[in-house]
Write a protein that binds this DNA or RNA. Structure first.
Length: 582
RNA sequence: GCGCCCGUAGCUCAGGCGGAUAGAGCGGCGGUUUCCUAAACCGCAGGUCGCAGGUUCAAGUCCUGCCGGGCGUACCA
């Protein structure tokens, strides 16, 4: 499954016979030259100078004469200070394409995760607030990591941990009471949002309202019936909204454990912290001093006796450990929560939990809005009405995709479901756009760049997939792996085959770095290779996949089929649809 | 003040382990459609890789210090 990796090892092994360095070290030195004409692997000989006391150029030349080539390697050439190796292309191509043909969608899979569980906390929005574009990253990054780990053989537990407890619910309860809202059950999420905004604004002028809100939350925590009834109504409204929006994205969870479900565990947790001497009282509140970790103190209970985020996250983490004995527990939330998770780990560590080290904060940058007047960017404020609703973004994406489809409606049959296709492409564009850059960067929200269908975008990858599908459809023949690989002589074919071999490595790296963009970048490169190859066949029928010569066509079909498997598999990992026509 | 993240072409971004002329996309200019789907392809223009030191045969990549932007820094989540 790691074919080219093993060739690397073989080469390193042969080199080791003539050098005072071991195989592993040499394998690390091997690199890929800038272009395939220069070679498929290259060894820079500079580093060897100090061992051999010779000029790099002489070392390269000398080694070229001595080294015995392993199977799969055709030639070694000295190129200045580099010793370059050329692979036996038909042999390598055969091995890669046969592997993909045999494995199909399982290509790229691994079993390193067998028997291990990864817990992924993602989505996790606050109930009673609209789902804005800033909720997109957690949902799609979390889902992608889920699928990547699953591909590597791990068992995954996707957990949505909605924020349905806390002082903001006190604000809502206080708002309903203050403004005398007639029928709280009939409110929509947007109404709740508006209430919250109004209340917060009023509180800016009348600070005593903040206290009223905190008191209302205290009533809720004490189980007062009116506060509880209101909270239940808010919660219900919010959860229904989530189902709708996550449904549009196709994001699902294995478990929904809201913050409120841990409220019973808070007192016990606090007591243990006190008994263990981990927490102390300070200004009426309970804190865990974290001087040794060089962190600010961590508050676990407020001075009015109510709980806060941390009070619920600690029992939630304990529960997850009890339930899953996870290999890792990933929290996919914004970078602004970095300190929170450092503190969470530190507190759990102090409680004696070795597994605290298995917690990983998969952070991502903020989505910032550009002020049309000043041109400056800032975090979108709900209060100023700058927040773009995720629902609106997705709807706009679908309608733009639909318009684009109309331009080439001749491609589709009468029974084609163009609405469904528009959803696949439009939402695919949004999801891919979110996943195509490294997650820690802040992004400036822009309708047009998020909804672009050309260039390095999701639809570009989908389009390549549709073209591949089209070729295979038109071929009207079975794809077999019993072909003459020596016929695949075009440079583009070699580039494509070699790139296909790199998919498993991309999957592994995406997991190691918790970085779905590795997959997205890989797909864009692969599709660029394919698109060039495909376009070369535009003018020249002999370069087409569906060329006149039977044996050549069969070989090319196998290559094309493999590319389609990989692209589809990669899109699947990202949570992007792979339509057969578009 | 302290901590973390970011600073690569006009714009948006790639650039695992330091290595051969720093790569894409968008935008600009110029080409390609009797079509294996032009949501594509090819070419041209465009970069002191924030600045200054350091380590190294070799630095966008590692180290230090600055500068600029962002986020966080006890009763929000």
């Amino acid at each position: 499954m790691r074919h080219t990796d093993s060739i690397e090892k073989l080469i390193a092994g042969r080199l080791a016979r003539h050098l005072p360095l071991d195989e592993t070290h040499l394998a690390g030195l091997l690199e890929t030259p800038p272009s395939p004409e220069i070679g498929d692997y290259g060894l820079p000989c500079y580093a060897l100078s100090k061992y051999l006391h010779k000029a790099p150029n002489d070392i390269a030349e000398d080694l070229r004469g001595k080294v015995e080539l392993p199977e799969g390697v055709r030639e070694a050439k000295a190129d200045g200070p580099y010793l370059n190796f050329f692979l036996d292309r038909p042999a390598v191509t055969a091995s890669v394409l046969k592997l993909i043909h045999g494995l199909g969608s399982a290509y790229g899979s691994d079993d390193v995760g067998a028997g291990k569980t990864i817990v992924i906390d993602f989505g996790s929005p606050n109930v009673a607030k609209d789902l804005g574009v800033h909720h997109l990253p957690s949902a799609v990054i979390g889902r992608a990591l889920y699928r990547v780990y699953e591909k590597l053989g791990y068992r995954c537990a996707g957990i949505n941990f909605p924020g349905d407890w806390g002082t903001s619910f006190g604000s809502l309860i206080a708002a309903v009471e203050r403004y005398d809202v007639p029928d709280p059950d009939a409110l929509t999420v947007s109404d709740l949002q508006e209430l919250y905004v109004r209340y917060t604004r009023d509180a800016a002028a009348q600070p005593e309202l903040l206290q009223t809100a905190r008191d209302a939350f205290a009533r809720l925590e004490q189980g007062e019936s009116r506060a509880t009834a209101l909270w239940q109504a808010f919660r219900q409204i919010g959860l229904e909204e989530f189902d709708q929006v996550y449904g549009m994205l196709g994001v699902t969870f294995d478990h929904v454990n809201a913050e409120s479900s841990y409220r019973e565990q808070i007192d016990g947790m606090v007591r243990r912290l006190l008994d263990q001497g981990v927490a102390i009282e300070s200004a009426g509140a309970l804190i865990v001093p974290l001087d040794d970790e060089n962190l600010p103190p961590c508050m676990v209970r407020k001075s009015d006796g109510t709980s806060l985020y941390m009070s619920r996250d600690i029992p939630a983490a304990e529960h997850r450990w009890e339930q899953f004995r996870f290999e890792k527990c990933l929290y996919v939330t914004g970078s602004e929560q970095s300190l929170h998770f450092k503190q969470l780990k530190a507190v759990l560590k102090r409680m004696g939990y070795e597994w605290a080290d298995r917690i990983e904060h998969v952070n991502f940058g903020l989505i910032r809005m550009r002020d049309p007047e000043t041109g400056k960017t800032r975090v979108g404020s709900t209060r100023r009405g700058e927040m773009v609703l995720l629902k609106d973004l997705l709807q706009e994406a679908v309608s733009r995709a639909r318009a684009k489809i109309e331009e080439s409606s001749g491609r589709f049959g009468q029974d084609a479901d163009l609405d469904d296709l528009a959803a696949q492409v439009g939402i695919g564009a949004v999801v891919f756009s979110e996943l195509s850059t490294r997650r820690t960067r802040d992004v400036i929200f822009d309708w047009d760049s998020m909804l672009d269908f050309e260039g390095d975008t999701g639809p570009y990858v989908q389009y390549a997939h549709a073209r591949l599908s089209s070729i295979l459809r038109k071929a009207e023949q079975e794809v077999v792996d019993d072909v003459d690989f020596a016929l695949l002589t075009l440079p583009e074919e070699w580039v494509l085959a070699r790139h296909l071999a790199g998919f498993p490595a991309a999957v592994r790296r995406a997991a190691a770095e918790s970085e779905p963009s590795v997959i997205a970048t890989y797909l864009l490169e692969l599709c660029a290779d394919f698109s060039s190859y495909y376009s070369a066949g535009m003018r020249d029928p002999d370069r087409r996949v569906l060329c006149p010569a039977d044996d050549l066509r069969a070989a090319r079909l196998l290559l094309v089929d493999a590319a389609r498997h990989v692209i589809r598999g990669g899109l699947e990992l990202l949570g992007v649809a792979a339509p057969e026509r578009m």
